[in-house]
Simulated scan of single mutants.
Amino acid sequence: MKKFFTILGGMGTQATESYIHQLNKRTDAHKDQDYFNYILVNHATVPDRTNFIVDPDNNESPLTPLAEDIEQQSKLKPDFFTLPCNTAHFFFEKLQSLTDIPILHMPNLTVEAIKNQFPNAKRVGLIATNGTLKDGVYDKPIKAAGYELVMPTQEIAKETMELIYQDVKEQDWVDGDLYHHILDQMVNDLNCDVVILGCTEISVAEERAGSADYPVIDAQIELVNETIRLAKASQTK
């Protein structure tokens, strides 16, 4: 297969399924051959990213299996990699150092998109796993772009983890009321001009329940958009 990319997925599987659904949905295709060529590595047994980041001494590192995936897939020479897991970007620099093939950086793409979608935004909120909140993969690009980073309260963070783990990961279910309550607190209580959906399980919630007109920017969709842009460019080479 030529002119293809590799998806490093399975973190979690429902989120990867949502990414692929949005990718195919947004592709301008009218027959089988109009879709993009890609390889999905649904590596579901990669250890939990948040558990390791929060407590590395008592949890297995996800880096080893992710590094093996990069090394194996690089031999097939994809045009680029996508990594539809925000928390896994904690390992981005180490993974990129293993290959000359570019890995798309979802947090950077998301922050770059804010200026076009929300040109007047100043206060940028972030909802994500505790791992992403701790590892700071969004902190640097948000602040470098000149925005004020608004972190969730402990209560919002707890509710977000419930949405991600107890609902989507454990039950493949979305509590729309809980999702909207989280957004309401970020926008109306913490005065965010826009809220980054910084976990692909939250992207699942957005896909199924919608944001109810709250100002959000979905990291997964920004990754999908860049995937499509690069895949189209590859087709014309």
Rank of each mutant, 00 (worst) to 15 (best):
F4D: 01
F5T: 02
L8E: 08
G10M: 09
G12S: 11
Q14M: 10
T16W: 12
E17H: 07
Y19A: 04
Y19E: 08
I20L: 15
A29E: 00
A29N: 09
A29T: 04
Y35N: 04
P47M: 02
P47S: 05
D48M: 09
D48Q: 12
R49W: 11
T50S: 14
N51R: 13
N51K: 15
I53N: 12
D55R: 10
D57F: 05
S61V: 05
P62I: 02
T64Y: 10
D69V: 03
I70S: 08
S74L: 07
P78D: 09
F80H: 11
F80T: 04
T82R: 05
A88I: 03
E93F: 02
L95V: 06
L95D: 11
I101T: 15
P107A: 05
L109K: 04
L109T: 07
T110V: 06
V111I: 15
I114H: 03
F118C: 06
P119Q: 05
A121E: 09
K122V: 04
L126C: 04
I127Y: 05
N130R: 14
T132W: 01
T132H: 07
L133N: 10
K134I: 01
V137L: 01
Y138D: 05
Y138R: 04
K143S: 13
A144E: 15
A144N: 14
Y147P: 00
V150W: 13
Q154F: 02
I156S: 05
A157C: 03
A157Q: 14
A157W: 07
E159S: 11
M161G: 02
M161R: 12
L163Y: 07
E170M: 13
H181E: 13
I182D: 10
L183Q: 12
M186Y: 07
L190A: 07
C192N: 15
D193L: 11
V195W: 02
G198A: 08
A205Y: 11
E206T: 13
A209I: 10
A209N: 11
G210T: 09
G210F: 13
A212D: 15
I217Y: 11
E222K: 14
E222T: 14
T227G: 08
I228P: 05
R229Y: 13
K232C: 02
S234H: 00
T236W: 00
T236M: 00
